[in-house]
Nucleic acid binder design. Structure first.
Lengths: 158, 158
DNA sequence: CCCGAGATGCGAACACCTCGCAGATAGAAC
DNA sequence: GTTCTATCTGCGAGGTGTTCGCATCTCGGG
C-alpha cells in the first residue's frame, strides 16, 4: 500500500511541524501521509508496516518517536484500547467504542460524553481526558456473546 | 503487611471456588485475602509483593493465573488504566477515574454512566462493559496541569 | 492413603514500548 | 553550493507487563 505524501492536507501538517522549528523528514512525511490516508486506528506497528512496504529502512522506533512529536504538536492522538497496542489517529478528538470480541473500533462524536464530563467536573472536580481511553464493550454483532473473531475493522458514525 | 486468610468474607469466596470444582490452595487463599483487605486497586505485582512478604514462594505468574481464575468466577475484575499495569479489585463493578498526572484512582458509582450506556445501546447497539477501562483525566489537584507526581493513592466516593 | 486432574514455581518467551548511541541529514547561515 | 550543527534516524539493547511450557507438587475424591 502506498500513500500520497504531498497532498495539501499532508503539507498543512508538515507546516505545523516546521512552525515549531522541528524538521520535516522522510519518516515524518510518511507517518503523516499514512495516518491521513490509511484506514483509521492504526497501531504504531501497523503504521510501520505500511510505511516499510515502500521504505523498509524506516524503523519502528522512529515511528514511535514521530508519533510522540506529533502528539506534542497536537495533530495526533493515541487511544488505549484495553489489552494490546494503542491506536493512533489524526487530530479531531472523538470517542472510541471498541468491541472486546472482534476489535472493531466505532468512532462516536464528542457530544456523546458532554453530560458525563459536566457531571464528573461538578461532582468530583475531575477533568475527563476525552478519547484517551476507549470505551470497551460489545458491538451489536457480538452483544449476545456470540463467538468468532473477525480481523479488526473500523466504522465511523458521524 | 499481613492479611487474615480465614475471615468469613474470604471463606465465602473460597466456597465459590470450591463450588466450581476448582481447588483452594494457599496461593488462592492469599490472593483473595489480600484483595479483600489491602488498599484498593492493586496491580498483580503489588499483590505479589504483599503476599511474598510472608510467602516468598508464591510466584508472580501464579498470582496472574489466580486472578484470571477469579475473574472467570466473577469475583474479581481488572481495569485498564492507560499506560502501565492493570489494577485488580473485588467484585462490585464501579467506574474508575484515573488521574494521568498522579495516578490516583477515584471510584465512582455505576449509576454515573447509566445514561451513557442507554444511549450507546440505543444509538450504536453497543453494550458497554462497565469498569473494564478507566476514565482518564485529571483529578482536582492536577486539573490545571500543575506538576509533581504523588505516589498512587486511592479514593472512594460512595 | 492413593491417585489424577489441576495448580504451582520457574524461567523463557512475548508484546509493546523506550532508550542510548553513533552516524546521517535538514535547513539556517554564509 | 558549501559548511555547520542541532536534530533525527537506524539499530540494537533494555524495560515492563503478561503469558506460556514444563516438570513437579498437591488438593481432595474415592
Amino acid at each position: 500500500m502506498t500513500f500520497l505524501t504531498d497532498t495539501p492536507e499532508v503539507e498543512a501538517v508538515l507546516d505545523r511541524i516546521r512552525e515549531t522549528g522541528a524538521r520535516v523528514t522522510t519518516a515524518r512525511r510518511l507517518v503523516v501521509a499514512t495516518l491521513i490516508d490509511a484506514p483509521a486506528h492504526l497501531t504504531a506497528e501497523d503504521l510501520a508496516g505500511f510505511i516499510q512496504h515502500r521504505h523498509p529502512e524506516v524503523h519502528l522506533s522512529t515511528v514511535y518517536r514521530t508519533l510522540e512529536s506529533l502528539e506534542k504538536l497536537g495533530v495526533v492522538e493515541h487511544t488505549h484500547v484495553g489489552h494490546g497496542a494503542s491506536v493512533y489517529h489524526m487530530g479531531v478528538t472523538h470517542h472510541h467504542l471498541v468491541c472486546e470480541e472482534c476489535g472493531v473500533v466505532i468512532d462516536a462524536p464528542m457530544a456523546l460524553l458532554d453530560d458525563l464530563r459536566e457531571t464528573l467536573h461538578r461532582q468530583y472536580g475531575f477533568d475527563l481526558h476525552v478519547g484517551h481511553s476507549a470505551l470497551l464493550g460489545r458491538c451489536d454483532r457480538h452483544a449476545a456473546g456470540r463467538v468468532g473473531h473477525d480481523p479488526h475493522g473500523s466504522i465511523t458514525i458521524p
